[in-house]
Design a protein around this nucleic acid. Structure first.
Lengths: 158, 158
DNA sequence: TCGATATGGTTGATGAGTCAACCATATCTG
DNA sequence: CAGATATGGTTGACTCATCAACCATATCGA
């Protein structure tokens, strides 16, 4: 990669393996989730958030903030999920512009069936392979990077 | 997240921040690459690989192995890139089934213009924020996970 | 109170990734 | 050598993600 010439030895190595890991790991986990439960990562994230909200419903804006998604992304995804009966949309009484998203019983069943195996896969391919120290460093890295992003990019105005 | 109940404190934290970091970081880097250079990550990966191949060309299979892509993914991507004049396809003399992909002068110009700013962004949002020790641990983690994936999934038969 | 602007969300177009089915050529085996 | 099988690649259908344009309602300020 042209990385090699523009980065130091150490940086190049970290960057390269990070990228490969990220891509391969996501591919495998997505694949298994889809195969085992018929859900995509996107479905999973939304259902997980709704499932533990009180009443199983959230205003779209609140949901977007929790999962950090762009608004059109959520809109499209919810439309597809509503089509499949995983989720329902309601008008919001306090703000006529807003929408409330509610998980359906089918949606709840789907996420409850999916979660254990999905988490197990995350363990199998990732978490169980790492030492406590490695897990801590990873979390540390995540916090640093997320903190920097929060400070140096627009809130999610996108 | 339902993660919280199925994972220990430490695992949940690592898993959660890793996922958030992964998503946000990729979004920002993609966005900047697109804005600054008119290339997607996918374009970038392919052009980078071709640019440092001898003669600027590789057999499709060789390219796939280097970047670890599924075959239809490469096929689609190359088709789009050929459309834009970044890349050209040739028949392979030694194996009539195979195709050779060659970077065009436009493609070379594009990657050479894109690389420095892309790497700079990777530094700015990621590499420069981390200590040498953190970079090493990250690379270590990557190797462990990739090694496990290599041993426990089909080579890429997908 | 009214007009400008901001905000929450939708829509359509397009690029990207995956899967399954497929086609052609190579290779292997009897 | 012939037929079966394996391999390299393409295609079409579909889901996802992003962008820009848009619509309706809220809110702000003169």
């Amino acid at each position: 990669m042209s990385e090699s010439r523009l980065l130091g030895e150490r940086e190049a190595r970290a960057w390269c393996t990070y990228n490969k890991m990220r891509e391969h790991l996501a591919a495998v986990l997505n694949q298994r989730l889809q195969r085992d439960s018929g859900l995509s990562e996107a479905d999973y994230v939304i259902l997980a958030a709704l499932a533990e909200a009180p009443e199983g419903r959230l205003r779209a804006l609140e949901l977007r903030c929790q999962i950090g998604w762009e608004k059109s992304r959520l809109s499209h995804q919810v439309a597809r999920m509503q089509q499949r009966g995983l989720v329902r949309k309601h008008l919001c009484p306090t703000d006529a512009r807003s929408a409330e998203i509610e998980i359906t019983p089918e949606g709840r069943a789907a996420i409850e069936a999916a979660a254990p195996t999905h988490i197990a896969a995350a363990r199998e391919y990732f978490l169980d392979l790492l030492s406590p120290e490695q897990l801590d460093v990873l979390a540390e890295i995540g916090d640093i990077v997320l903190g920097h992003l929060a400070r140096h990019t627009r809130p999610s105005s996108r």
